[in-house]
Structure formats: structure tokens, C-alpha cells
Design a protein around this nucleic acid. Structure first.
Lengths: 242, 242
DNA sequence: AGATTGAGCTCGCCA
DNA sequence: TGGCGAGGTCAATCT
């Protein structure tokens, strides 16, 4: 049985349940479209009458029952919920999802399933990164225009009292530029590090630029707070050019 | 062309785009699973590298790019956005969604579509209701146990200085009960109405019960705030028993 | 229409 | 692990 293919109109509820359960257990995202009623009870309560809806079950156990128009779901369960798939009486499919602390319970009862769809999501967390940060330094030194037009590299690993600046240069207006490079997702720490270099050279009133493949939300916040800039650069870009 | 069937692996991008566009224009919810990059710019910014994701386009123009584990989306656009579907160079599908005030722009670029799924959602708003509220009154008078065991109806449309109470009765403990009946979704107004009757008869320290097929979130809030009760009753239940 | 406020907030960060 | 505050908050209700 190829559960990756998802449920189609010909499947009965037992077959549908098996496909969906297997997909969920294998770590796939499962999307179900069909006629269902939905009951939520816990901190609050909300019941939905029978109707055609799409429901998403994520590998973490998070469940989303989509509302027809709003971006927000009609009913849902966060990722710390325990979600089960079972058949009730051979003609109804039950998705039950419970979590404790706070206690919330969601029950979706499908009387008819039009279709389901299973897929393995790309996990944005595990970016398997090859090579080291120095390769990215060299890449920027060789391709300064990747920072911006007329950017000039003045110094590599320029010393300050707070540590070494990855790349120090100047822009087209002769303004000093401090470039901090991270080869993986930049965290709050990375921005703080940049901030310390900015403080060390505050007499120059330099621009601060963080270069990384991505950045955490907290890092982004501090970045915009301090009016520093962000340039997206992936280690793969560096490797391709090598 | 039957766009209801959704996109499958055999469709090329032009065919896929047509199916998806037609489904969206016809007011269907569209779910797309495939490899895509996502760019958001506006009040903030967030970019997602190429990866397999599911995206939902709702009739209102709301767009949701699902995150792999969290209940919250990776990227999104609220329902007041203008969402367009187009083909870029015959091998990429673009979903662009913009809104003003505040300005936000979301661009999803699909390089590969595994599948799409279209369906007409049940609109929870338009509950075409037959009959009138009085039928529900009569039903409750004939079936007082539907309120609760040993509930006794004392008066129909009991007058107060603030208007007539739909149903006035007492419970098994001889406590007075005010029942307000709505034949469609109860709003804040319905709860306020119940509240006024409670005030009119405050000497009796009565219980307040709202009977309706459903209730708005704001109504629910006031209800629990005031410690009133809610009983779900649909007009169809009344009609079936007739 | 703009401002305000609540949410089953959710979620990330910090102690 | 519990709390604390922010969010592209969103969405509903007010003024």
C-alpha cells in the first residue's frame, strides 16, 4: 500500500484511516479534505456543524482546521498535543488531539473523505552546512560587490578591544562598514557581537552589516532596532563559486 | 477541463496554473503542495528557501504557507489581500498576494507542483434557516427536558420592564431560570438581551440560559463572564420533531 | 475608517 | 520548566 498517494474517493474509511495513520506515523504532513464535524473543549469551546473543510495534521501533532476565509483557523491544536487517528464503526474517521497544561481537546469526526494528501516537509531547522566561515570571508573579499556596489574591503579580521571584526571596509560614500559573517542562522548573539564592534569603533559612526543564511526573529528585532543591515548569503553560494 | 479534480503530477505549469486560477476565481479553496520559495516583504520580511510545502489560498484572498510543525504559518497574507496566480516562463507558477494599509507583499514561486486540491467550503455564515423563533419556543415548551432534567416551564413571553422573556421557568432546585432563544447564531446583542432580563428579575437571582444553534466569540465571552449558560439547539432539530 | 482590545492567543527567549 | 512579552500578531468591536 502506497500511503504517499493519499486517500481517494474509492477508499473506504478503514483504508483511509490506515493510509492517514501510516503517513502521520512516518512523519509526514497530512491534509484531509472531507465532510466533518469538529468539537473543541478545554480552556474554551467551539463546535462546528457538519461541513466540507480541510484539516492539516503536522508531524508534531499540531492540527489545523481551516476556516473558509480568514487566515486564522476555525479550530486547532498546538504542536504539543497528542494526536490520534482511528476508525469509529467502519464508516467514520476520528482525529482526536489532546494536550495537557493547559488541557485542550479537539475531536474531528469525518463522515466522508474526498481526498487526502501526504508529504514530507523540508525541515528548515536542519540546514546541513559544509565548509567554514572563513570560506565566506574569502568569498566576500573576492566578490565585494556581493555586499553592495562599490564596496571596498579594507581589512580582514580587524582587531578591536572587543574582538576581531570579520570584514572591515568602506562604502561608495567613504563611510566605514563593519561586516559580521555567520555561516549558519544568525542568533541574537550574532547581532550583539556586531553591536560590540560598532561600539568599539563608534567614533567612525560605521554602518553595521550582518551576513548569514538566515536570522532568528529575536535577532531580526535587535537588528532593526539598531538600524543594522542584513544580507542573506548561503554557504552553498560560496561553494558553487569555488 | 475539470479543475475540481486539482493538479496532478502529469500537468505542466500552464495547465496547473489554469486549474488553480479557475478554482480560485470560482470561489474554491485551493491547496497546493510542491517545491517553492517564499518571499515576504512589508512591515517585516521573511524569506524561505526552496522546499516542499503546502499553501492554502482561500476565496477571500487569504494565503497561508504552512510551517512544518508549528500551528502557526511560516508565511501568510490576511483576507484583505489581492491574490493573483500566474505563470512565469512556462516552468514556474507564481502566487502573488498584496495588500495595502499596511502594505504587505507575499510572493510564492513554485518550481514544482506535486498536487493541488480544490473544494467549495461550507460557509458557516449563511445558515439558511426555515421557520421562526416561535417554533423553537413551542418545542422547548413541549420538551422541557431538552433544557435539562426536571426543568419546568412557568411562563411563555413573560413581561418585564426591559421586554418579554422568551421562556421563564424553574429548575430541579426551584431556582428561577430565564431562557433566551435565538434561531440563528447568537451575537453579543442576544447575550445583552438576556443580561437585561436578568437585571429585571435580579431579586430572584435567576439562572440565565441562552439557546441558539451557535454563538459568536464575543457573545461567548460575555456569556462566560456573566456565568450564563449556553445550550446548542438548531432549528432543524425542532423541525424534525414536528 | 481608524483606534482599541482580546485571544483556547502562539511562540520564542530568558531565568 | 515556568514566566514574560512580542507579534507582519489577526479579527472584532468601538468611536
Amino acid at each position: 500500500m502506497d500511503y504517499k498517494k493519499g486517500v481517494n474517493e474509492e477508499d473506504n474509511m478503514v483504508e483511509a484511516s490506515n493510509k492517514i495513520l501510516n503517513a502521520h506515523l512516518s512523519g509526514d504532513v497530512v491534509i484531509i479534505v472531507g465532510d466533518c464535524t469538529v468539537s473543541y473543549e478545554g480552556r474554551g469551546w467551539k463546535y462546528l456543524d457538519e461541513g466540507k473543510r480541510s484539516t492539516i495534521i503536522k508531524p508534531s501533532g499540531a492540527v489545523v482546521v481551516n476556516s473558509p476565509n480568514s487566515v486564522q483557523p476555525e479550530n486547532w491544536q498546538p504542536g504539543d498535543a497528542e494526536t490520534k487517528v482511528e476508525v469509529d464503526g467502519e464508516d467514520e474517521l476520528l482525529i482526536s488531539s489532546e494536550r495537557q497544561n493547559p488541557y485542550d481537546s479537539l475531536l474531528i469526526r469525518f463522515t466522508n473523505i474526498n481526498k487526502s494528501l501526504h508529504y514530507t516537509p523540508s525541515n528548515d531547522e536542519e540546514e546541513s552546512v559544509e565548509g567554514d566561515e572563513n570560506e565566506m570571508h574569502e568569498y566576500i573579499i573576492d566578490n565585494p560587490e556581493r555586499i553592495e556596489d562599490d564596496f571596498t574591503v579594507l581589512e580582514h579580521e580587524k582587531e578591536t578591544k572587543f574582538g576581531d571584526i570579520d570584514i572591515f571596509g568602506r562604502d561608495t560614500n567613504n563611510k566605514s562598514v563593519i561586516v559580521e559573517v555567520k555561516r549558519r542562522k544568525a542568533s541574537l548573539d550574532a547581532v550583539s557581537q556586531l553591536d560590540r564592534y560598532m561600539e568599539a569603533l563608534e567614533d567612525l559612526k560605521p554602518r553595521g552589516i550582518l551576513v548569514a543564511p538566515s536570522i532568528t526573529e529575536s535577532g531580526k528585532k535587535l537588528l532593526s532596532n539598531k538600524n543594522y543591515e542584513f544580507i542573506r548569503m548561503k554557504p552553498t553560494e560560496v561553494m558553487e563559486k569555488d
